[in-house]
């Protein structure tokens, strides 16, 4: 019997998403049932094309589904995100030019493979309903597709093994002083997922920054001499340059590769080193705290606990897992 863990990836590719896709497809412990794209880091046309480029480069037989083109409701009020207080700029100057974390297109050949017909949320509903084994969802972008699927058919929760989310922050934030990008981009979707009753593990910035990779790791990845290793090294070096220019990491020679940590946690949860069961809700108020993952740290929370929150992670284990997966091709 195939004892690989059945997973669906949901991505807004995205530089760290690309590393996550490569790891999920290459890891022998996972069976990737499909990859859904969503708007987030970049518009949906870009995240879908970038996802196809990565799958094509891998030569993998994994279907790609185009997902939601924007958040459920957060952009209906034009002031809510455009004018968001304390929002950090997307571009920053480095070595005499303007750079950003996620370039519009990944530096890979244009995709000739195509997406499937089915919209991503419907693929999720269909696949989870029909699967004989429970399915694990790995959303590493805004949670729009997952929320749509859970609203279309709330009973899929019964056949979901776990939802491992890259998103949010407890004491570490990026897009605003209160919020991490994925959750901030679609707060209502995130709250729908957190209230769904599913078994949820959240990897906020606290964990993904703790597992930051370094220029030395990039060198090791390049040293593998494989396509995946070389591409992961390029992406990591770019991230380190941008994070350093933005003064967003604790050191100039490291950067988090957020999304790939979700894939590694799905294979070996011990890559996460401080996981606490807490009540987490998302602020959807549209004010200073919009999109905050509010972790109730009080001794007596007012609502039942609903989420395993990772606050720390092991960068050595993370790096060695990626090196293993990228060593073959």
């Amino acid at each position: 019997m195939d004892n690989r863990r059945k997973v669906i990836l949901d991505v807004d590719t995205g530089s760290d998403d690309a590393v996550a896709i490569m790891a999920a497809v290459c890891a022998p412990e996972l069976e990737v049932l499909g990859i859904c794209s969503v708007a987030g880091n970049l518009p949906i046309d870009n995240t879908t094309e970038n996802t196809l480029r990565v799958v094509q480069m891998l030569g993998a037989d994994v279907p790609v589904y185009r997902g939601a083109s924007g958040p459920l409701v957060a952009q209906l009020n034009p002031l809510r995100q455009d004018m968001a207080p304390r929002k950090k700029p997307v571009f920053v100057e480095s070595r005499g030019r303007m750079v950003r974390v996620h370039n519009e297109y990944l530096d890979l050949p244009a995709a000739t493979i195509k997406t499937q017909d089915l919209p991503a949320a419907m693929f999720i509903v269909d696949t989870v309903r029909k699967s004989k084994e429970k399915v694990t969802l790995l959303p590493v972008g805004p949670l729009t597709n997952i929320a749509l699927a859970l609203k279309l058919d709330p009973t899929i929760v019964n056949n979901i093994d776990e939802i491992i989310i890259m998103g949010g922050g407890h004491a570490v934030f990026n897009t605003t002083s209160a919020a991490e990008f994925n959750i901030w981009f679609d707060p209502e979707a995130a709250e729908i997922v957190l209230q769904s009753g599913a078994n949820i593990t959240l990897l906020p910035l606290d964990a993904t920054h703790a597992a930051s990779l370094s220029l030395d790791d990039a060198k090791a990845l390049r040293g593998l001499g494989t396509k995946t290793g070389t591409f992961a090294a390029e992406l990591l070096e770019h991230r380190i340059e941008v994070f350093s220019a933005m003064k967003q990491a604790l050191r100039d020679d490291i950067a988090p590769v957020h999304d790939a940590l979700v894939v590694c946690a799905a294979i070996d949860p011990s890559v996460l080193t401080d996981v606490r069961f807490m009540r987490v809700d998302v602020d959807c108020g549209g004010g200073y705290a919009d999109g905050q993952t509010l972790c109730d740290t009080r001794a007596l929370p007012t609502k039942p606990r609903n989420c395993h929150v990772a606050l720390d992670a092991d960068p050595q284990k993370f790096a060695s897992m990626l090196l293993k997966y990228f060593s073959k091709s």
Binding site: K247, Q248, A249, D283, C284, G285, Y288, Q292
Partner: peptide
């Protein structure tokens, strides 16, 4: 935050680097 949502009345501290 004075938006009336879950974080109403939170002192939002900007700890970003």
């Amino acid at each position: 935050d004075f938006s009336g949502g879950l974080c109403d009345g939170e002192t939002v501290v900007d700890t970003r680097l």
